[in-house]
Design a protein around this nucleic acid. Structure first.
Length: 493
RNA sequence: GGGCCGGUAGCUCAGUCUGGUCAGAGCAUCGGACUUUUAAUCCGAGUGUCCUGGGUUCGAAUCCCAGCCGGCUCACCA
């Protein structure tokens, strides 16, 4: 039922033959344009007041894809689109010797053309074609010009059509690029250095997630796709790099929904001599700055909400927040049985074999997180579900960890990194135990090389993981992650 | 995985409830007219595996069953 099985229309193939039979190459190798569409517009506007009586500028050359053809017999209007916008052109039989060759152009073709700019009687800046050349013959018809392309599946599977037909799709692609580039600049301006760590790893550690497995033939062993960059970046902290960040793809072999794609982009950063309070300030500042720079505002419209990103964001003590919303105190319900009873009593289903940390996680995502519309930091997580975070000195059951939420989405996870190698080993061993006990559930994994690194000494460090896809969703007002990932994962055809 | 909704021309859709001029419209395409149009206009042409496979029926795009694909939602999951 998809494009790939559809035959190429005969009419297009015939035009292709026509071009060739006239000795015209339908796929030449290059074209020199002097202006893109927006430069052409300003070129005209700059010269407009000084033009002579025929109102034409000197000749320029532009190139792009034909989006509309309006033939009027001995004159033809051709709209051309490039990545900067649209430009109208006009071919007239009187002033274009190859006018009759225009029979072989179609909507979708790439052409180059040159001539002076002028204004039509309706005031539209228009290139009067003196010469033109086919740059690439299109063999398939484009989506309809008026309604555009709206079939969601086609938009995702053939994103190029979405990009051609929908300005919004182009805007999101540009916005995402801008976001990443501004993010990178921000990090660099704070003297973080950008690094790259392995994607193929022997142990998928640094988070609780099911990994993808692959096989490396040369070494005859299975490897995993990373679920986080955390442990490698911390090795760099051990190495003394002090401020590092990585923007990169991570992979989780899990469900697929509005907020989850199996491969997604995270930024992780680590800063020596700082703790999670410093990171909180850093995140507020970072996201607020990006909104200012990219969107020119501190207040983002998302669905029905106006979200104000101005720092400082609300800080909510996680434990107090759970108590006030559910009456459950996780310090008192500190074993699986009592927590399970309390959760059942407020209608949360915990019948599956689940660890204590897993249950708290569920409690959070069903009772707390959906209500966090404005930017919020949930602060101080139970140590049991934070195996890589340092414990609070005042209370060994709590970790110096926070997560940031906007519009009900988790957008970051951060903590004061645990740098006590003995404690870290004990915590990861506990995770390994839990993994055996709760077969269905994912736990963090023990990475012996990482522990060895810690034993050499890591400075006190504040660490951060930031979900880029979700922030781009927020910045672009999109409710689905598939809208901000150019090629989202879909089922097989 | 459960529930709901959907899949008809290249694209956007109507037709399904109530089976029988139901193979349709607009855009795109093809032929013709037109030298300042811009959703150009005017005249003419319908280009199709009605998602797939079964079934019911004299007759199925339409009703039934199974499957595939997608969207939303719940569950699961950072």
């Amino acid at each position: 039922m998809h494009e790939f099985e559809n035959p190429i229309p005969d009419a297009r193939l015939n035009k292709l033959k026509q071009l060739r039979s006239k000795g015209l190459d339908p796929y030449p190798s290059r074209y020199s344009r002097t202006h893109n569409s927006s430069e052409a517009t300003s070129f005209y506007e700059d010269l407009e007041s000084s033009l002579d009586e025929n109102g034409q500028t000197p000749e320029i050359s532009v190139a792009g894809r034909i989006t509309a053809i309006r033939g009027m017999g001995k004159a033809t209007f051709i709209d051309v689109m490039d990545s900067h916008g649209h430009l109208q052109s006009l071919a007239r039989q009187g002033s274009l010797s190859s006018y009759s060759d225009l029979r072989d152009i179609d909507i979708g073709d790439w052409i180059g053309m040159s001539g002076p700019l002028m204004k039509t009687r309706t005031g539209q800046i228009t290139l009067e074609i003196k010469s033109w050349i086919m740059l690439s013959k299109s063999l398939r018809p484009l989506p309809e010009k008026w309604h555009g392309l709206s079939d969601v599946e086609t938009r995702y599977r053939q994103r190029y059509l979405d990009l051609i037909a929908n300005e919004d799709a182009r805007n999101i692609a540009v916005l995402r690029s801008k976001f990443v580039s501004e993010l990178r600049q921000f990090m660099q301006s704070k003297n973080f250095i950008e690094v790259e760590t392995p994607i193929l790893v022997p142990i998928a550690a640094g988070g609780t997630a099911r990994p993808f497995v692959t096989h490396y033939n040369a070494l005859g062993r299975d490897l995993y796709l990373r679920i986080a960059t955390e442990l490698y970046l911390k090795r760099l902290m051990v190495g003394g790099l002090e401020r590092v960040f990585e923007i990169g793809r991570t992979f989780r072999n899990e469900g697929l929904d509005l907020h989850h794609n199996p491969e997604f982009t995270m930024m992780e950063s680590y800063e020596a001599y700082s703790n999670y309070h410093d990171v909180m300030g850093f995140v507020e500042n970072l996201i607020h700055t990006l909104a200012q720079t990219i969107l020119g505002t501190s207040v983002i419209k998302y669905g029905d909400h106006n979200i104000d990103l101005t720092p400082p964001w609300t800080k909510l003590d996680l434990r107090k927040e759970i108590i006030s919303k559910t009456g459950i105190d996780f310090l008192k319900s500190n074993d699986v049985e009592s927590l399970s009873l309390s959760m059942k009593s407020i209608g949360i289903n915990v019948e599956k074999q689940v660890s204590w940390g897993g249950m708290i996680d569920k409690l959070l995502s069903s009772a707390i997180e959906p209500h966090l519309t404005q930017p919020v930091f949930l602060v101080d997580y139970p140590v049991e579900m934070s195996p890589l975070a340092k414990t609070k000195q005042e209370n060994p059951h709590l970790a110096e960890r926070f997560e940031g939420f906007i519009a009900g989405m988790e957008i970051c996870n951060a903590f004061t990194e645990l740098n006590d190698p003995i404690d870290q080993r004990a915590r990861l061993e506990k995770q390994e135990e839990l993994r055996i006990q709760f077969q269905d559930e994912d736990m963090d994994r023990l990475d012996e090389d990482f522990l060895t690194a810690l034993e050499y000494g890591m400075p006190p460090t504040g660490g951060l993981g930031l979900g880029i896809d979700r922030l781009v969703m927020l910045f672009s007002g999109k409710p689905s992650i598939k809208e901000v990932v150019l090629f989202p994962q879909l089922r097989n055809q």
